[in-house]
Design a binder for these strands. Sequence first.
DNA 1: ACCCTCCTGTCA
DNA 2: TGACAGGAGGGT
Length: 272
Amino acid sequence: MPELPEVETVARQLAPRVTGRQVRALRIVDPLLRRGSVPVVAGRKVEDVKRSGKRVLFELSPRRGRRDRLWLAVHLRMTGRLLWRGGEERRPRPRHRARFTMDGGELLFADTRRFGTFDWYRRREDAAPGGVEPLSDDFTVARLVDLLGASPQELKPWLLRQDRIVGLGNIYASEILHRARLSPFRPAGSLTRKEARRLRDATRRILERAIANCGTTFSDFQDARGVEGSYQQFLAVYDGAGEPCRRCRTPIVRNVQQQRSTFHCPACQQWP
DNA sequence: ACCCTCCTGTCA
DNA sequence: TGACAGGAGGGT
């Protein structure tokens, strides 16, 4: 469940449950998750939980009598999930890669495909991602035009890059381009200012609506405490090859760009 | 600027 | 059995 709206949803649901709690122990079950050394976490308090790009960022207090504040960025990748289990939970634990034991409950990191990562930072500025947050005030038309530059890269793969704009993934990139009526095959650098404005506005609108609906959930394999999105009912093109375009009824087409599916309407997303 | 790979599960 | 899956780092 890993694009910006889904990660935002996870962070929002998690924050009130774990903020203020003290971590008693961290057990990393899957050795793949411990690249390099893992800092001491026991005894620290969770002071903040928020989204940063596509990652969930935990701010952990210094240990008693020290000033070694710590940040943990959890990247969910394709299948990662953060599950809070209150102290009264009696059902068996689901399979997981890491477990934080806290006052009053435990936080599990479950991740079937095991692509997810933990990254530890000693300084807040190191924990921030590279690109601009698309929902921040920094994401202006001028900024977008500047980022697009003269890039020859096709627009859709360009949107997936995290070093310019953070948070977009395969679903929302297609949805955004459809809303903006831009071809996914256009060179990113070929947009006019007017088109860049459409792209900026569509990006914001789609992401905001997706967040308002707690993101997109495929299949139905969420645990009781897991996050369940409802934005899938608003998807205009993603996973809809052959379905009529909501604007013009032309059948949606699936293509592959950089080994990933792209969905678009060949009629209202033309590039002459 | 591309292809491959990491890993597991599901579906046709 | 092979294709595909919401991601991205590494190599060429």
